[in-house]
Design a protein around this nucleic acid. Structure first.
Length: 435
RNA sequence: GGAGAGGUCGCAUAGUGGUCUAGUGCGUUCGCUUGGAAAGCGAAUGUUGUCGCAAGACAACCGGGAGUUCGAAUCUCCCCCUCUCCGCCA
């Protein structure tokens, strides 16, 4: 959500920001609504003032009259205010100035590359073929039990997941992240704050509806969904910023509308595990924090020695709340393509405004010279600002395993384990099971 | 799942229809006092919004929502959360 004051002062920028993301909004209409709300607000306020006075005088007759008038005004105000709020929620966060304007992913820019794509003197297999030969991925049984887009990870595959989690958590804890395991079920109110419903419905997330309970619960699409609202309605101390979390959780996605896309193996599944980074910081440190989170993602993949490229999203591929976003795409020899394995975005103060997460900032004190009295210094004013929230993937376990399997496969069908992970796996190679 | 208690200004508490413009204590800040400090004394001390150049004025907010009333922290209804006991349970 954008600040109405910002919209009043920068109507063109807001209109253009939405257009750059190919989202249609009508800023002019929103400003009209805003004026109307303020007009009605002042009328209502005057009536309330009178009502309060009348009640104090115990003027019952006049009070009855005012009550009716006031009710009318309040209803009118509520209707327009509601309309304004709905309109405000439809405005996307404008992209940062440094983001390229573009229609869709075809205009994204590759800004960095690490290593050349892995070369083989044999025809590399894809992760599913490998996974089945090694007996570490089983989608057939999962189809029987859960349906398509589910998988069992077993044997060394399961252990590899634990190794990745342990490695990432240790790495991030050393970087002063707070390790955390969040709930994966969230309530309705929080999904609204997160914007699950913007764009006219929920095509992305699962919900659980117990017929015996009136309450609906929603499965998180990423740990971010339960980490960010942790601080809803709080005022953080500037000294504790940046506050960084390293969260491990499962993530659930309906993938409605992606039928026929990436149907093979575990690249795109309904349930996967992830180590996620979430950072709360100040306005002035936002850009620096974004670079920092990206650098951590790069370090992790460099330590696995997996070739990748960093892609900077153009406006059309940014998504609603992000002002800037980078994807790290790992080389996947099975497909012969770079595929997204992590992503990192800043939502600036867009999410925090909606969820009301702020921090206290002290403006510098001022010194004034008083005639004949010398100088006097006044303490700074405390100002509350919305925090800037960034989030990025450390490891999306499934996709990272794909990258490892495909890049580390050997001619004999075995797969080597990246050196940094060996102390966590306890083995350095996965060999095909003879059946 | 059953029974009970409770959610009030940073914290602790008072407040059961108009004197609440929410009292008091603690904490915090400033001032007085002091060689300096403590204590003491005095004052200030929430959030959001509207109007205003400003000083300020006013409105809304006592877990959330709806209602009764001229008037609600206070009465009614629904919901949420916390605590205690019992049951069940990894």
């Amino acid at each position: 959500m954008l600040d109405i004051k910002f919209i009043r002062e920068n109507p063109k920028k807001v209109q253009q920001g939405a257009a750059d993301k190919s989202i249609e909004i009508n800023v002019e209409h929103i400003l009209e609504l805003d004026n109307k709300v303020r007009e009605l607000e002042s009328i209502t306020q005057k009536l309330r003032e009178e009502r309060n006075k009348t009640a104090k005088e115990r003027n019952i007759e006049k009070g009855k009259e005012l009550k009716i008038k006031l009710e009318k005004q309040e209803n009118a105000l509520r209707a327009v205010a509601e309309e304004l709020k709905t309109s405000l929620l439809e405005i996307p966060n404008p992209a940062s100035d440094d983001v390229k304007i573009g229609i869709d992913e075809s205009e994204n820019e590759v800004i960095k590359k690490y290593k050349e794509p892995t070369k083989f003197d044999f025809k590399p297999l894809d992760h599913l073929e490998l996974g089945e030969k090694l007996d570490i991925i089983d989608v057939k049984s999962a189809a029987k039990v859960s349906g398509t887009r589910f998988a069992y990870l077993k044997n060394e595959g399961a252990l590899l997941e634990f190794a990745l989690i342990q490695y990432a958590m240790e790495f991030l804890t050393k970087e002063s992240f707070i390790p955390i395991i969040p709930p994966v079920l969230i309530n309705r109110e929080i999904t609204e704050g997160l914007g699950y419903w913007s764009g006219g419905g929920n095509g992305e997330y699962y919900y659980l509806n117990d017929p015996d309970e009136k309450k609906e619960m929603y499965l998180v699409g990423t740990a971010e969904h339960s980490i960010v609202p942790m601080h809803k309605d709080e005022v953080l101390n500037k000294k504790e910023l940046p506050k960084r979390y390293a969260a491990f959780s499962s993530a659930f996605r309906r993938e409605a509308g992606s039928y026929g896309k990436d149907t093979k193996g575990i690249l795109r599944v309904h349930q996967f595990d992830k180590v996620e980074m979430v950072s709360f910081t100040t306005e002035e440190n936002d850009d620096k924090e974004h670079d920092y989170l990206l650098s951590l993602q790069e370090k992790l993949f460099q330590s696995l020695e997996i070739p990748y490229q960093v892609v900077k999203m153009c406006t059309g591929d940014l998504g609603f709340p992000a002002a800037r976003k980078y994807d790290l795409e790992a080389w996947m020899p099975g497909e012969g393509k770079f595929r997204e394995v992590t992503s990192v975005s800043t939502t600036t103060d867009f999410q925090s405004r909606r969820l009301n997460i702020r921090y206290e900032d002290k403006m510098p004190g001022s010194t004034i010279v008083q005639a004949g009295l010398g100088t006097k210094t006044f303490g700074g004013t405390i100002v509350k600002k919305y925090v800037h929230i960034l989030n990025g993937t450390a490891f999306a376990i499934g996709r990272t395993i794909i990258a490892i399997l495909e890049n580390y496969q050997q001619k004999d069908g075995s797969v080597l384990i990246p050196k940094v992970l060996q102390k966590y796996t306890g083995f350095s190679k996965i060999s095909p099971k003879s059946s």
